[in-house]
């Protein structure tokens, strides 16, 4: 019980630090990095519910992110509906689609499932590329209107975007935390450790995997809406690409799997690294930033194979003899 309280306190401190950081600097570029960091950390947290807890590797989360982005954008672009309502529609569509496509895929195990999620995401991308109603491959420039909370558009400062991202992020982390400590979380972990054993104990594995996927998809969609409103332009290659899916996977693996702190730590390292190398070295258009980024990922994987969280746990364990057993 004490450990649980301690963990909750840690979370409050982390939220406080993240919240204060952008107020310490008026640098717009720094604010941009914070927003992108929160979006990807949130996506990582959402992904972690199905993959980290449930052990079902998804290589296709860009699909839900993209559906969220497109739902609000289409409603705003064609009918002038507030993106907040669009976000809600995005949540519903993405939850329904995740249920429809995941249900048959859950018969597949391990890598077969992972490749199936990749296939589903690619099919959805292809559909959006050739779908005229959503402007296909050309993409949509979101009409610029006067800044307001209702239109989720702010032109004078990036801070409102940060606050929205922060809100969505907190909702996502708390949802993940709630699931982790609930009966469903224990079921999911049982499924991750041994599918057969979980079934033998009477857990309806398909049902709980489905719930986890639906929650994960719904949360991912919200960040899609925010991202579209923040960038004010979307096309299928931006939101549905495998790069987005892989970035979510990479940062969570980098941080440490199966724990709500993993994606947070991974995103805190990976996103500033990728954004700042892009800003300072990407200008030449020669890909120097990505060469360095790639090399750094290799080095981290080689020298800290358990993720950053593994490293931290090792350190804490040595000093206090706590957390000796990793639950990742």
């Amino acid at each position: 019980m004490d450990v649980k309280k301690l963990k909750f306190d840690a979370l409050v401190y982390i939220f406080a630090v993240i919240f204060i950081l952008p107020f310490l600097s008026s640098n717009a570029n720094f604010h941009h990095v914070m927003i992108i960091f929160l979006i990807y950390a949130g996506l990582g947290e959402a992904w972690n519910i199905i993959t980290g807890f449930g052990g079902q590797t998804s290589f296709g989360h860009a699909a839900f992110f993209g559906i969220g982005a497109y739902s609000s954008t289409i409603l705003f672009y064609k009918f002038g509906v507030s993106p907040w309502l669009g976000m809600l529609v995005g949540i519903i569509i993405s939850t329904v689609i995740s249920a429809i496509v995941s249900y048959p895929c859950f018969r597949l195990k391990g890598h077969y499932f992972a490749i199936a999620t990749l296939a589903v995401a690619e099919i959805i991308k292809q559909i959006f590329i050739s779908w005229d109603y959503v402007e296909g491959a050309t993409g949509i420039s979101i009409p610029i209107v006067e800044e307001s909370l209702a239109a989720m558009q702010f032109h004078s400062s990036k801070m409102p975007y940060f606050l929205i991202a922060f809100g969505l992020f907190i909702i996502t982390v708390l949802t993940a935390r709630y699931i982790e400590n609930s009966r469903m979380g224990y079921y999911l972990k049982a499924i991750r450790e041994s599918h057969e054993a979980a079934e033998a104990l009477g857990i309806n594995t398909t049902r709980y995997k489905l719930y986890a996927m639906m929650v994960s998809a719904a949360l991912s969609a919200t960040f899609g809406t925010l991202y579209a409103q923040y960038i004010l332009y979307i096309d299928p290659f931006m939101v549905f690409t495998m790069e987005v899916s892989m970035k979510i996977v990479l940062l969570s693996v980098l941080g440490g799997l199966g724990n709500i702190y993993g994606p947070l730590i991974g995103a805190a390292i990976l996103i500033p690294l990728s954004e700042y190398t892009r800003v300072y070295l990407g200008g030449t258009g020669k890909g120097v930033d990505l060469i360095i980024f790639g090399a750094l990922i290799i080095l981290v994987a080689c020298f800290e194979p358990n993720g950053i969280l593994g490293l931290l746990k090792k350190g804490v364990g040595k000093r206090r003899g706590l957390y000796a057993r990793t639950d990742a």
Binding site: L290, G294, I297, V300, P305
Partner: peptide, 20 residues
């Protein structure tokens, strides 16, 4: 290494080669 760490390494390698 556990889980998807090998994937992390090969993905980094892919980025490295492609951009080089």
């Amino acid at each position: 290494a556990p889980g998807l760490t090998a994937l992390l390494a090969t993905f980094g390698l892919s980025l490295f080669i492609r951009n080089l």
